[in-house]
């Protein structure tokens, strides 16, 4: 004969249900918090990429042949060598 469960069973079921709800809430909060962290990291990556690009532009401009040629001529008095000044290493 079927018998109604006791208060203990209801208590256990309620505790399990509560634990599931709290777990879900905790996971959801973690998802949101990780989502913010991901978004922040993405922004940081973007900012670092921009900085890298800015430095790349600076680097390319600083090492451009025209710039180096001007610096070599103006500051160091250098010029294209004559044939007898060229030594080719074997």
């Amino acid at each position: 004969m079927w018998k109604l469960p006791g208060w203990g069973t209801y208590g256990v079921l309620t505790a399990v249900g509560l634990a599931l709800v709290l777990s879900h809430l905790w996971i959801r909060l973690q998802v949101v918090s990780t989502g913010y962290a991901l978004a922040d990291t993405r922004q940081l990556i973007s900012a670092l990429q921009e900085e890298h690009h800015a430095l790349t532009i600076e680097w390319e401009a600083a090492t451009a042949p025209s710039h180096l040629s001007q610096l070599a001529g103006d500051r160091l008095g250098l010029a294209v060598p004559r044939p007898e000044q060229i030594v080719i290493l074997p």
């Binding site: 008095g77 010029a79 004559r82 007898e84 000044q85 060229i86 030594v87 080719i88 074997p90």
Partner: peptide
């Protein structure tokens, strides 16, 4: 040719440093 190959019999660092010393 005046271009020199380092290690060749004609190559002379002394020649390079004196005769070929460069100034504009």
């Amino acid at each position: 040719t005046d271009i020199q190959w380092a290690g060749s019999p004609q190559f002379s660092t002394a020649k390079l440093s004196t005769e070929s010393a460069f100034s504009p």
